[in-house]
Write a protein that binds this DNA or RNA. Sequence first.
DNA 1: CTTGCTCCTGACGCGGCGGGAGGTCCGTAC
DNA 2: GTACGGACCTCCCGCCGCGTCAGGAGCAAG
Lengths: 249, 249
Amino acid sequence: MDSLLTIGQLASRAGLTVRALHHYEDLGLLAPSRTEAGHRRYGPCEVERVQQIRSLQSLGVPLREIRAALDAPNFDPAALVARQREAVEAEAARLGDLAGRLRTLHAYLQRRAEAGTPVPPDAFLQTLHAMQDIERHYTPEQLDQLKARADELGEDTIRAVEAEWPQLFEKVGREMDAGTDPTDPRARTLIDRWDELVAMFTNHDPGITQALGTVWRESGGSASRMAGLDPDRMRDLFAYAQRVRDARE
Amino acid sequence: MDSLLTIGQLASRAGLTVRALHHYEDLGLLAPSRTEAGHRRYGPCEVERVQQIRSLQSLGVPLREIRAALDAPNFDPAALVARQREAVEAEAARLGDLAGRLRTLHAYLQRRAEAGTPVPPDAFLQTLHAMQDIERHYTPEQLDQLKARADELGEDTIRAVEAEWPQLFEKVGREMDAGTDPTDPRARTLIDRWDELVAMFTNHDPGITQALGTVWRESGGSASRMAGLDPDRMRDLFAYAQRVRDARE
DNA sequence: CTTGCTCCTGACGCGGCGGGAGGTCCGTAC
DNA sequence: GTACGGACCTCCCGCCGCGTCAGGAGCAAG
């Protein structure tokens, strides 16, 4: 009744496991006395220490840093909290970003599933590849702008545009195959629509539009596979579109 | 020139390390062919596979799950993304919470430092303990309310109230020691101010005020040490305050 | 043939424990 | 006296995604 607790008693009272207490001891955070037989006995002092460990752990401070803090009799709480705050906020920001991308992706897959055209595994992987390419070529601000613009347009518009792209590619491809002259109004109308769709998302920002061009040129493969087209075919389509634009003057 | 890459070439092109490629292979994610001497050779197929691995990794999917996905020829992208989204959002929420608590704590320590009364290490640890007690006794909604109320009040008010508490305890203690009758207006004025300060933060919400009482009763120790007072002294102060309230009718 | 680069396998380390093996100690009941 | 159940002890492996040696072999150029 000396208020000396066994490891099991301390564990259940403090709401942690025997194994955890062993671990703290291995790390030199805790040094209970021992009975003759080698069983650990925890006094009030150790009990308080466990509380302190748990308190600092609740802030996400790593155990070795906790040891350093508790061993230094006069550490600076403000400095510790400041460090921890920085670390946690950085990690939270990273995860927040990731969560955002996953939400966008989830919404896209959801739309496709509801539209009856679920994304097959390989197209999905190519979409991811394309996303990586895009994130490499755009600045974070541009990505924010694109995302904001997409939110502005609303889900219905996005759905409609996503459905229109393949059809548009199809039509342009037919004109190209038919050898339609780049100055022909039929071609020009299609390419105007093309540029209009792009402008809808880029919000007429030349920087963003240019970056989009870079993505298409440097890693056209991924973008094309995303649309379900052969990269060579895609390149031809782009070249034809460019000729139409040039002819428009 | 068979477009068979050595491990070093693939690593530098894909922007990862040789060790990482070894690791993927250990996990059965990748199976490059070998030269007679046992050196790995990566063909286009493996290169693509590495891309896919990296793509899924960029979503935070664990390697073993990636293996499962890539090994199953027709896995469901939507399901995978949905799972990952849930997991990441849960983790992001946890970290966001933690970041919030660290911000609050940082602001508090900052105020104390600027006020010339930096928080000593032991008081800091007791504050953490008190925070844990409080979080155990309040519902999440109540905590949100408290936080919102604190934001409403503004930093200056909080600063002033934090400075007033010790003085108030001091004055109440003097009346108690002097044996002032609980019905005495001097005592009543002090306790009215006490309740007023509490009400400022609890926003007169009886649920929150009651929870605060529970914290003070069940784990009075931590709350008192936070204020730099002896727990017994604190208990006496609370008992005296309650007598004054009862006498007020 | 040597030099210097790349490649190989094997193993430890990190962080915070979980979980199990195999043995010891303790209190109670027979 | 002893048998039993439960709590305790000390190793030690596993997780996750690699980083980082260590010690040795292959390979192209001078």
